[in-house]
Computed example of a mutant assay.
Amino acid sequence: MTRYHCAVVIPTKNAMPGLKPVLQAVLAQEAPWPFEVIVIDSGSRDGTAEYVRGLSGVRLIEIPPESFGHGRTRNLGVEAADAQYVAFLTHDARPADPHWLANLVAAAEQDSGIAGVFGRHIAYDTASPFTRNDLDRHFEGFLAHPLVVHRDLDPQKYENDIGWRQFLHFYSDNNSLLRKSVWEKIPYPDVEFAEDQLWARAVIEAGYAKAYAPEAAVYHSHDYSPLEQLRRAFDESRNFKKYFGYELSPKLFPALATIAHFSVQAFRQKLDETRYGKVSLRQRLDRAGQRAGLVAGHFLGANHQHLPKPLAGRISLDNRLFKA
């Protein structure tokens, strides 16, 4: 018999000061059942561990920095949780209201075959109009499909349509929840990237379902510089090719054409001013640079095997990927 109905697990490293409002929002959750909060810190030097240690109602687990792994550390959190369900947040994803956790659990409790649930992301008010628009459009797209999906919705499409498979295994541990009894059979893979989507693919292929909970929203967004976007896209492309077989912008001339297209689009795209405000020239320039970094990173990541390893390691945000 589990002690808690749900646990919330948050991996951290040097997460201050943004972690404070996240934990405040988590501890303020209103639910008709007991839940626990677990923070797993991997060697913070900015006072994160000390802050968490001083909170009542939060359990701190400390691990050496070298033992951190996106899948491995989340497995540690699920194993430590004395709960039927385990929700994940990142340290910069703040629940949007006091019902976030109850809404995640309610989505899972629709059917015992639902292995995992992911919730909506809302951009912070400080995000650029383009970032806010991108997030809104991305999550609004899920509303065009059933909120609970599984492979048997269309088995033939699952076998033949790569886009449909990508849709079915989209999953984000910035805001998610899993059923621990399923995790006991299918734990997270011990990988450095895309552990959430790899797990979602595994449970879908095992015959389980996945749910989207649009009412379980968190504030989470980033406005990356062109270089930050390039480096993140490099890791994304490299690992999507490795783990899923997807090639993102693998050819040079189509990639250059896409950069040109995105650059023009950045200056022509019209956004709803009542929703996002007036777009400045500076924001359009930033958008053009960011989109160029995205495509360039995808191209370099898809062709990383042709790059000198020291260069690939310098481009990667997580150069542990290139040490083996």
Rank of each mutant, 00 (worst) to 15 (best):
F262W: 11
P226K: 04
R74D: 00
N133G: 14
E62Q: 07
L198F: 06
S280M: 01
K270P: 00
R282C: 05
L19Q: 01
P34A: 12
S316T: 03
E273S: 08
V264N: 14
L285M: 11
Q290K: 15
Y171M: 15
D223Y: 11
N75G: 04
Y158L: 03
V105Y: 06
G43V: 06
V149S: 10
R120Y: 03
D125H: 04
D136F: 11
A106T: 05
T131G: 10
L60S: 09
D196V: 04
F139M: 07
F267R: 05
P65G: 06
W183P: 00
D111V: 01
F118N: 00
Q29S: 01
V39K: 00
F262Q: 15
F139H: 02
P155S: 07
G313H: 02
A302F: 08
L271I: 13
L178H: 04
L178A: 01
Q29G: 04
A102Y: 09
R320P: 02
E236T: 13
G207P: 12
D41C: 10
K251D: 14
R53G: 15
K13T: 10
R132M: 05
F167K: 14
L307E: 09
G277E: 07
P254Y: 05
E30V: 10
I204L: 15
A324V: 14
N75Y: 03
H304S: 11
L104A: 12
D235L: 01
P95L: 07
D161I: 00
F253P: 07
A28T: 08
L27R: 14
E66S: 13
F68T: 08
R45L: 13
F234I: 09
N14V: 03
R231G: 02
Q84Y: 12
R137A: 09
A115M: 05
E273D: 02
V26F: 08
A102R: 12
P189F: 10
F240Q: 11
E66C: 05
Y246F: 14
A217E: 02
R165G: 12
Q29K: 00
I38F: 10
K309F: 05
L230F: 05
D152F: 06
I114E: 03
K241F: 09
A107I: 00
A292D: 02
V148F: 00
F240M: 15
Q29W: 03
D190G: 09
Q283M: 05
R151M: 03
L76V: 01
G313R: 09
A81C: 06
A211Q: 02
Q265V: 07
A31S: 10
P65M: 10
P308T: 06
L198N: 00
S316W: 09
G141R: 05
G47C: 07
R275W: 01
P11V: 09
